[in-house]
C-alpha cells in the first residue's frame, strides 16, 4: 500500500465518521463541531486529488466562514441538548422508493461513466489556471456571482439596520 493511499483512507475515515456523528448525535452544538472534521477531511481529499486551491478555499469558506456562523447561530438557541431533530416516520413506502431510485441513479452513473483513469501528471499549482479561466472563459458568471453576493450583503445590512428608525 502506498503512503498516499494510507493518507487517503485516513481522510476518508475522518470524513465519514464525523459525518455519521453529525447526523446521529443528540446535541446540536456537537453536530456543528463534528461538521468541522467533515469539512477538514474533504479538504484533505481535495489536496490528494491535486486541487490545492479548492482545498484551501474549502477550509477558508466552510470552516472559517460558514461553520463559525453556524456555531454562533446554534449557541444562541436556547435548547441545545435533546432536540427532537428526527421527525416521525410517516410515509415509509414513498420515502423508500424515492431514496431507492435516487441511490440507483447515483450508482448507475458511477458505474457507467467512463472515468478518466489515466495517471495524469498532478499540476504543481492550479491557482494560475483558475485565475485565467475565471477572467476569460467564465468572466460573466464570475461577475454575476459577485453582484449576487453584493446584493445579499446589502440586503443583510438593511435588515440589520431596520430597527434603528
Amino acid at each position: 500500500m502506498n503512503f498516499y493511499d494510507i493518507i487517503f483512507y485516513i481522510f476518508a475515515a475522518i470524513t465519514l465518521l464525523s459525518a455519521l456523528f453529525v447526523v446521529t448525535t443528540r446535541n446540536i452544538v456537537h453536530s456543528a463541531f463534528y461538521l468541522l472534521f467533515t469539512f477538514f477531511g474533504v479538504a484533505g481529499i481535495y489536496v490528494l486529488l491535486g486541487a490545492d486551491f479548492i482545498a484551501i478555499s474549502q477550509i477558508l469558506i466552510y470552516v472559517g466562514g460558514i461553520l463559525i456562523l453556524l456555531l454562533f447561530g446554534v449557541m444562541l438557541t436556547n435548547k441545545i441538548t435533546n432536540v427532537e431533530i428526527r421527525t416521525g416516520t410517516v410515509h415509509m413506502l414513498p420515502a423508500a422508493i424515492a431514496t431507492g431510485i435516487f441511490m440507483g441513479a447515483v450508482v448507475a452513473v458511477m458505474v457507467w461513466t467512463e472515468w478518466k483513469s489515466e495517471p495524469s501528471v498532478i499540476p504543481l499549482t492550479t491557482t494560475k489556471d483558475i485565475g485565467h479561466l475565471l477572467l476569460t472563459d467564465y468572466v460573466l458568471i464570475f461577475e454575476l456571482l459577485g453582484i449576487l453576493l453584493l446584493v445579499a450583503l446589502i440586503g443583510a445590512a438593511s435588515i440589520a439596520r431596520r430597527d434603528e428608525e
Binding site: 463541531f33 468541522l36 484551501i56 478555499s57 477550509i59 477558508l60 470552516v63 472559517g64 466562514g65 461553520l67 463559525i68 456555531l71
Partner: peptide, 10 residues
Amino acid sequence: VLAISSLVVA
C-alpha cells in the same frame, strides 16, 4: 495561512 488560522477560531 489565511485559511488554516480559522481552525483557531473554531
